[in-house]
């Protein structure tokens, strides 16, 4: 494998790891920039927003809470999968797809609960993380492979 190919592989790995880190980090960021819930996370955040009369169709308080916690959880799982199987493994791709789906759903749900203007960095970083995971997991082979050097002798050594 050539140096260029190795660099591209490392970049793709970095995307995957960075995406996982972004999903994890989103749990410690503000999901609501201002107003009620801005200092809250997790179920307290969901409880507060729902208590103020907002709701998301087909998503109960419990489901919204699970959805919120799935975001950083999938970020952690992506690292585990990377370590065990690699960023371009089937498992890694499944996790990346799930993370993207969950981050899109969560961002959409909170947009419904709080409005776009009040969304904090949390959902935005989560979305970014989901896309980065997918980019790292589905980087095309052709982009990864370096140009092959001149053909070597392929005859097996004989004794």
């Amino acid at each position: 494998m050539g140096e260029g190919s190795r660099r591209r592989a490392r970049f793709a790995d970095g995307c995957y790891l960075g995406g996982g880190a972004a999903l994890l980090a989103s749990a410690f960021m503000r999901w609501i920039a201002r107003g009620a819930g801005s200092g809250l996370r997790g179920h307290a955040l969901v409880d507060t927003l729902v208590a103020l009369g907002k709701h998301v169709p087909a998503l109960s308080v419990a489901r919204l809470t699970i959805l919120w916690y799935l975001v950083p959880a999938l970020g952690a799982v992506s690292w585990i999968v990377y370590g065990l199987l690699g960023a371009r493994s089937r498992g890694a791709r499944i996790v990346a797809l799930a993370a993207l789906l969950v981050s899109v759903l969560a961002a959409g749900a909170f947009r419904q609960l709080a409005g776009t203007a009040r969304l904090g960095w949390g959902p935005k970083v989560a979305l970014l993380g989901g896309f980065a995971l997918c980019a790292g997991a589905w980087v095309p082979d052709a982009w990864l492979r370096a140009r092959r050097p001149a053909a070597r002798s392929s005859e097996p050594a004989s004794v």
């Binding site: 996982g20 994890l24 997790g42 916690y69 950083p72 952690a76 799982v77 690292w79 585990i80 370590g83």
Partner: peptide, 17 residues
Amino acid sequence: MIAAAGVAALVLVGTFA
């Protein structure tokens, strides 16, 4: 190491919850 960090992060998320 990355896998271990992922496990630790998962435990952290659980503790947080």
